[in-house]
């Protein structure tokens, strides 16, 4: 079985429009639908939920995460 998502760039192109979990270095997690992102790993999310220590803290319709916040992982 061939995987379509080899390099980080290909992975990101495949994951746009899908539900993602974005973990920041600070420990805060954001769940939402990935609308787009750029080379700085700035990220735009829709239907965003903000999770801190496993608790839902906030909901945003649209959210922009600046890439300098040390985005750790997306899935």
């Amino acid at each position: 079985m061939q995987s379509q998502e080899r390099s980080p760039t290909e992975f990101l192109n495949n994951v746009i429009g899908r539900p993602v979990l974005v973990k920041l270095n600070s420990g805060v997690d954001y769940r939402g639908i990935l609308s787009c992102l750029d080379g700085y790993m700035n990220i735009a999310l829709e239907q965003t939920e903000e999770w801190v220590n496993g608790q839902l803290k906030n909901k945003y319709g649209d959210a922009f995460i600046r890439g300098n916040n040390g985005i750790k992982s997306i899935l």
Binding site: F11, L12, L75
Partner: peptide, 11 residues
């Protein structure tokens, strides 16, 4: 456990 992730290389 995580299914599939992109890990930022910065750290």
């Amino acid at each position: 456990k995580l299914d599939k992730i992109l890990l930022n290389g910065n750290n």
